[in-house]
Design a binder for these strands. Structure first.
Lengths: 214, 214
DNA sequence: CAACTAAACGGACTTTACCCCGTTTATATT
DNA sequence: AATATAAACGGGGTAAAGTCCGTTTAGTTG
């Protein structure tokens, strides 16, 4: 009678065939991604090429966007490991300011490197960034806690900062030309702007930096 | 021989029937928008209810998102008039700082008021914000020019500021819960954050505020 | 007013994401 | 090993966006 206490939620163990098919689908989608672009990956073709039914594909990933989200999350797991236990300045060992700057820099690099996949992951499901923003917010909050700035509302400040990082990044992903300087065609230096923001925040000391929510 | 010098671009004059149908479609879509939500407006239903063919709908607006974009632009025209010649602090008459703050506040209000339509306008065409961002950037640049801060790179600063305004706003529209405080469920005060940013910029004086692109 | 032309129109057709549900299968239990 | 069952599977079906191209029509010119 050692039933799990929690009856809700999906089954804890993934069936062997389900796992095999999930990995197979991810592998095939990566193949197709290289051959043609993300926009030419259709679910029919994916299913056929993986030797599976369409129904299986959707049961696994819920939607077309879901597949690309899964692809992205695989990468994101690696990123998160680096953040939590990799070498400084991204990982532990550096000061909070350096780690904040490094976090933004690497996250921006990560998403711009995977621009096509990230865009496909948003398709028809613009709510996608929610979970990623939350990851960013939690990490920022942790670092702010360590920094011990004299800020009353750490939670609120973390939210502000994550919006300042993820917002322009989302805008850039949505339409890179929107953040392109008309004069020289150079893309805005998101990472530099982020670094500057963090440095000013830490320089300012215990007054009131980016205002927290009321 | 008074041919227009520019042979490119679409014909300058809209045919009478085309105009009639365009207005009719916009009216019908507004109706349907109230009855059911934006997500239940289908192009087939729209065409039928307007007594027109589907081809006509797409010829006019290019895509489903295009219709909602047109709807939004109609409102945006009114907004722009207020900006250019309305009463202060949004319109001329107030100082650059007040006008910048007012601009952000009203733009945020405008988009959150029309959240459903704005989301529909992004569907399948996340590049939508590009044109709006450009409007924001130009206006900010104009006000910065008047302010005569001691900034070397006004163009770059304007780009940074428009990203700081439009980025988080886009993020909020994409997934409001991403910018929601987990403790009290209150949405982040975008407008307050914007006001704070502008005030700090003007307080800082002629040193180096939000860094411009290299 | 008649001929002409470029634009607008209509609606069948195609494509593709996503749903449904009868069938199969992995896994736990005895 | 036999049984039970919850999960996974398959692929035909549906809905809705977007395309194509033959037909109609507004506006222009002589």
């Amino acid at each position: 009678m050692d039933r799990p206490v929690v009856p809700l939620g999906r089954p804890r163990t993934e069936r062997a065939d389900a796992k095999r098919n999930r990995l197979r689908l991810l592998a095939v989608v990566r193949e197709m991604l290289e051959e043609c672009g993300a926009e030419h990956v259709t679910m029919d073709a994916l299913a056929e090429r993986a030797g599976l039914g369409k129904g299986t594909v959707f049961r696994r990933f819920g939607s077309r966007a879901g597949i690309f989200k899964a692809l992205l999350e695989e990468e994101a797991r690696r990123f998160q490991e680096l953040v939590l236990s990799g070498p400084p300045p991204l990982g532990p060992g550096a000061g909070p300011a350096e780690r904040l700057i490094a976090y933004g820099r690497v996250r921006i690099g990560f998403l711009t490197d995977n621009l096509a996949v990230a865009r496909a992951a948003m398709d028809r499901d613009v709510a996608a960034p929610a979970v990623e923003v939350d990851m960013t917010r939690l990490h920022i909050r942790m670092l702010l806690g360590q920094a011990d700035l004299g800020v009353r509302d750490v939670e609120g400040l973390a939210l502000q900062l994550s919006a300042a990082l993820e917002g322009p990044l989302l805008l850039y992903m949505a339409s890179p030309q929107a953040l392109t300087d008309a004069r020289d065609g150079g893309a805005m230096r998101l990472a530099d702007a982020w670094q500057d923001l963090v440095e000013r925040l830490f320089r300012a000391g215990p007054e009131q930096p980016p205002r927290g929510p009321e």
